[in-house]
Nucleic acid binder design. Structure first.
Length: 508
RNA sequence: GCCGCGUUGGUCAAGGGGUUAAGACGCCUCCCUUUCACGGAGGAAUCACGGGUUCGAAUCCCGUACGUGGUACCA
């Protein structure tokens, strides 16, 4: 048996959205689970929609996600070229072959003539008229024109396309790994263009030819392709034989809060839809990515994997290795799933807690530096990050949750302190400063013990005092344990902060 | 319109003839902590509708509704 070969075939026309990443992921998981190869092939047959930089962008996203292709335009491989535009010539011969065998025909209709036909035949019951078995005999093609006329047009290099000739009233069925038996009536499928006037193949011809040439064994794609699957099945039958056709799986769609997930939804509801930042070179419009929003790649992969799939147990947190081990295409859902940003954030929080901080420390450091906070001591940075990691959902949260470890507070939560402040407290903290000054061992237990001892002496409830101390050190009522903070920022800085706050608080 | 695919709490979902119909996110209450989280204990909330088949249907069948995709010389 030949090795499992699975391909992801993006068309570089913009950012890589959630559905796209999940399609790659499932392809990748399946390939790796079965010890096969994961191939990335670029579908750039539509030059008008091709966007400069998009191909490189796709590979950057894959890299960030931890998906390394075995074969691709970037990684090489023995089934190249991996860009459809680079194999343009070979598609024509397959199209010609189909015409010769009577499975396809030349069509000379101009775009204007096509539009006219669709307009003329349009009715309320049939708003979108197809070029199909019912209409093709009224059009200008090698089925209706005399052979000599066809030859003449061809010899004169008249612009033309090649269309598949859908058979009459045949049931085309195939087995989908997710949907099981799916069938269509061939009379209801239109005569799709196979080869465009510019000589480029359409997706329909290209996938089939490429999958054959690259010996693809499994093909997983979005459900939006299900409707055109009968064309592909027929092409396989005509060209290479159904026995060589890859096994199909049509993945359910990822939906937005209202219907299909779109770039608009992201803007409207405030969540990313692309893996990484994408700037459209035509409009210069920037769409924020999950990476830049502060997601960990592990979380991103995880949340996508369980959107439409689960392993049947209660486990929800999976690493890439676990996913490869547990994944099974049969357990992928049939129905589309709505993307829930709240749950997405939860996955990120879980991964922030789960992973050692050193994994994402460089990224967090960048966030600090972007806010003009220089981190000179990486070891201290690690310590602080560990102290606050479980209260961070997205990476930028680390800044808000830990900035006080690096900067002396400039403002205080006066509303919290004022009602509790009195002469007794002033007296307490003044004496506390002296005591702390004399404390030789600046470590958590000692700092706390010293504090508690004085509260007992002064007969003040320690709770209120701790809250005030916190505001003195942090500025607000947040963060890890007060004494933990005091220990971390050091004796000198702690005393500084207490004294600085004391000046302000004593005016209350 | 036609064709395809789908439908278990607000969301993700387990379950595929007999269950008190799991679990997670979110929401609410309480505990922990006189901070914010984490953690812990509870709570509200579901089988789209109508017909069958069956002793018995969330599970099987048929309709309807709704959603979604396609209906391009786009992928």
């Amino acid at each position: 048996m030949s090795k499992v070969r699975v391909r992801f075939a993006p068309s570089p026309t913009g950012g890589l959205h959630l559905g796209g990443v999940r399609t790659v992921l499932f392809n990748y998981l399946f390939a790796k689970k079965h010890g096969g190869d994961f191939i990335v092939r670029i579908e750039d047959t539509d030059q008008t929609r091709f966007v400069a930089g998009a191909e490189e962008y796709i590979f950057e996203c894959l890299k960030w996600c931890g998906i390394e292709p075995d074969e691709s335009p970037l990684h090489g491989g023995s089934y190249g070229p991996y860009r459809q535009s680079e194999r343009k010539e070979s598609y024509r011969q397959y199209a010609e072959q189909l015409v010769k065998d009577g499975f396809a025909y030349y069509a000379f209709d101009t775009p204007g003539e096509l539009e006219k036909m669709r307009n003329d035949l349009k009715t309320a019951e049939n708003p979108s008229v197809q070029y199909d078995i019912r209409t093709r005999m009224q059009m200008k093609n090698s089925l209706t024109l005399p052979a000599v006329e066809v030859k003449k047009l061809l010899d004169e290099n008249t612009r033309h396309v090649v269309r598949i000739k859908m058979p009459e009233d045949e049931t085309i069925s195939f087995t989908d790994m997710i949907h099981h038996e799916v069938s269509f009536n061939s009379s209801l499928v239109d005569d799709k263009v196979l080869l465009k006037a510019d000589g480029m193949p359409t997706y329909h011809l290209a996938v089939v030819v490429d999958d054959y040439l690259m010996q693809i064994t499994h093909a997983f794609r979005g459900e939006e392709w299900l409707s055109s699957a009968p064309v592909h099945v027929l092409l396989w039958k005509y060209l290479f034989g159904l026995d060589k056709m890859p096994k199909w799986a049509h993945l359910p769609l990822i939906l937005g809060p209202s219907g299909k997930l779109s770039k608009r939804d992201g803007a409207k509801y405030g969540f990313p839809v692309f893996a990484m930042n994408w700037t459209d070179p035509k409009t210069n419009e920037l769409t924020e990515g999950f990476k830049e929003k502060g997601f960990l790649p592990e979380a991103f992969i995880n949340l996508l994997a369980v959107l439409g799939w689960n392993d049947g147990t209660e486990q929800e947190i999976f690493s890439m290795d676990e996913l490869i081990e547990r994944f099974s295409i049969e357990r992928v859902h049939k129905a589309g799933a709505k993307f829930d940003f709240e749950k997405a954030k939860w996955f990120n929080q879980e991964w922030i807690k789960k992973l050692p901080v050193t994994n994402y420390q460089p990224g967090v450091k960048e966030i600090f530096e972007a806010k003009s906070v220089t981190i000179s001591d990486d070891e201290y940075f690690t310590k602080v990050l560990n102290l606050v990691k479980e209260r961070c959902v997205l990476l930028p949260d680390f800044y808000d949750q830990s900035i006080f470890f690096f900067k002396t507070p400039v403002a205080y939560d006066e509303a919290a302190v004022k009602p509790k402040w009195d002469a007794g407290k002033l007296n307490f903290f003044t004496e506390m400063v002296t005591r702390y000054n004399n404390l030789t061992e600046w470590e958590i237990e000692a700092i706390e013990a010293e504090f508690k001892a004085l509260t007992t002496e002064k007969n003040i409830k320690p709770g209120e005092l701790q809250m005030i101390l916190r505001v003195m050190l942090v500025g607000t009522k947040m963060g890890p344990g007060v004494f933990v903070i005091a220990e971390a920022i050091g004796k000198e800085e702690s005393l500084n902060r207490i004294q600085k706050a004391l000046i302000i608080f004593s005016t209350f």
